[in-house]
């Protein structure tokens, strides 16, 4: 039973005169992990940032086409981008925790949403840390600086922080590219666990990772979506030759 969460139709994105994304149409499914793969500069990260409108922060970006989440056009003039971003969590390539304590990082989102009750905040902190499989490791040191954690823990704390605003979609931009294999495995386990409740989109350079964690894979090349299918099919029997060349490591 798959439901469509995000629908994209004929999306084009321009940085000034330069076209970065061309004619992209894709359906992303709820409670599935969708991986975006492709060589550097192919537009997969740019596309990821279209989904929570992070590109708004860059001057001179123009977007045409349609993107709907649950049937709502997210580039509608009346849409509140702040509310949109609260429904979409984002995890970045490198951990970008604030130089505050672990606890303060966790409750940053809820607090700017106006939650002040310490008890509620405590509950959110505990719940999200358990979800991010970090509770056992940090429960006794919530008031320690977040930056005192190891790289892998920091990245899982970033995920926990994103979960704290109760999003429906989680976007991950190469979340494990700066981590060692053990930390990476933990992140991947976590993604597997989270997909029961969330729609997850992950950009990755690591083909094995895409094969391991995702249900669907989209291959981007030069700003175009070349092929999009079930992960098993993309990696064993792709219909496009460019996709095959890329996933088998012949170029990229």
């Amino acid at each position: 039973m798959k439901e469509t969460k995000i629908t994209v139709k004929n999306l084009n994105l321009f940085y000034g005169e330069k076209q970065a994304l061309a004619d992209i149409s894709i359906d992303i499914y709820s409670q599935r992990v969708t991986a975006f793969i492709g060589p550097s500069g192919c537009g997969k990260s740019t596309f990821l940032r279209v989904i929570n409108r992070m590109n708004d922060l860059i001057d001179d970006v123009r977007i045409t086409g349609k993107i709907q989440i649950d049937g709502i056009d997210i580039y509608d003039k009346n849409l509140d981008v702040v509310n949109l971003r609260k429904r979409i969590g984002m995890v970045f390539q490198k951990s970008n925790l604030f130089p505050k304590t672990i606890y303060e990082n966790l409750i940053f989102g809820p607090r700017i949403n106006g939650i002040k009750d310490r008890k509620v905040l405590d509950e959110i902190a505990e719940k999200t840390l358990i979800q991010a499989a970090l509770w056992e490791e940090v429960k006794d040191r919530l008031d320690d600086p977040a930056l005192s954690l190891s790289g892998g823990q920091q990245q899982r704390l970033c995920i926990a922080r994103a979960l704290a605003v109760e999003p429906q979609i989680i976007l991950m931009d190469e979340p494990a590219s700066a981590l060692d294999p053990i930390s990476t495995a933990k992140i991947e386990e976590l993604i597997d666990e989270l997909k029961k409740n969330y729609t997850i989109v992950i950009v990755t350079h690591n083909m094995q990772q895409a094969a391991r964690v995702s249900d669907y894979t989209a291959f981007f090349y030069l700003g175009r979506l070349i092929e999009y299918d079930k992960t098993s099919r993309i990696f064993t029997n792709p219909s496009n030759r460019q996709t095959e060349d890329y996933v088998t490591g012949r170029f990229g």
Binding site: M54, L57, R85, L97, K100, G109
Partner: peptide, 27 residues
Amino acid sequence: VPKSHRDASYGLGATKWQTIKNVVLPQ
């Protein structure tokens, strides 16, 4: 103040002023 910290704040649904007040100014 690193751009990545501003991104983190916006990504969590903070407005511009909230980002400046809670992330940029303290740093």
